[in-house]
């Protein structure tokens, strides 16, 4: 078995407006080896096959996939917003690449800044985000952003933005402003 640097928790969110938000969030499994990751990955639906309103989240053990968590509340996210048609051609590749960045500690000395990643399946366009713990840590956030953009294979013309969770929470009906872009 090949151990990972951290133990990770996979969460699944299914939107049911009749229940409180937190009740719709389920812990699927935890793992801390490469082999256990692939066993998990091969047993769950691909992100592109989930219903609209569902999310997967992969977070380090001890960090809940919500803004309110102590490890997230001063943080933010690198956000990739996808066009509708990308669900069928690119979503699964981009989400897997995101997972591999996290599990492989691809952000080097700044990997400890990473809290997790989320994929949101939405009718109006899916989203993938990498969450980090300190929005004010510009060096760490920018390093993660540059590596992440390169790993996703995005063209230099594609811009991805980083938003602080505090700004996103304050603007629930519209996109928060980008604090950084790459």
């Amino acid at each position: 078995q090949h151990p990972l640097q951290y133990r990770w928790v996979l969460w699944f969110f299914k939107n049911d407006r009749s229940r409180p938000w937190q009740d719709n969030l389920q812990l699927v499994t935890t793992f801390n080896t490469v082999e256990e990751f692939w066993s998990t990955y091969s047993h769950i639906k691909l992100a592109s096959k989930l219903s609209s309103g569902c999310d997967y989240a992969l977070f380090k053990e001890g960090i809940r996939p919500m803004w309110e968590d102590n490890r997230n509340k001063r943080g933010g996210r690198w956000l990739l917003s996808l066009a509708k048609q990308q669900r069928h051609i690119e979503l699964d590749r981009l989400w897997l690449e995101t997972l591999l960045c996290l599990l492989g500690e691809s952000f080097e000395r700044y990997s400890k800044e990473v809290c997790g990643a989320v994929v949101n399946i939405r009718t109006k366009g899916d989203k993938i985000a990498v969450w980090t713990s300190e929005a004010e840590n510009q060096a760490g956030v920018m390093h993660i952003g540059h590596v992440y953009k390169e790993r996703l294979g995005l063209s230099s013309k594609t811009i991805i933005g980083y938003q602080a969770h505090a700004d996103t929470a304050a603007k629930s009906n519209s996109l928060a402003k980008n604090k950084f872009v790459v």
Binding site: H2, V34, E35, W38, S39, S42
Partner: peptide
């Protein structure tokens, strides 16, 4: 040491039989 793996290394394990 730090458990750092590149993407190709991780992908090599994708279709190995699970032994957990």
């Amino acid at each position: 040491g730090k458990k750092q793996y590149d993407r190709e290394f991780l992908l090599d394990f994708q279709f190995m039989p699970a032994c957990i």
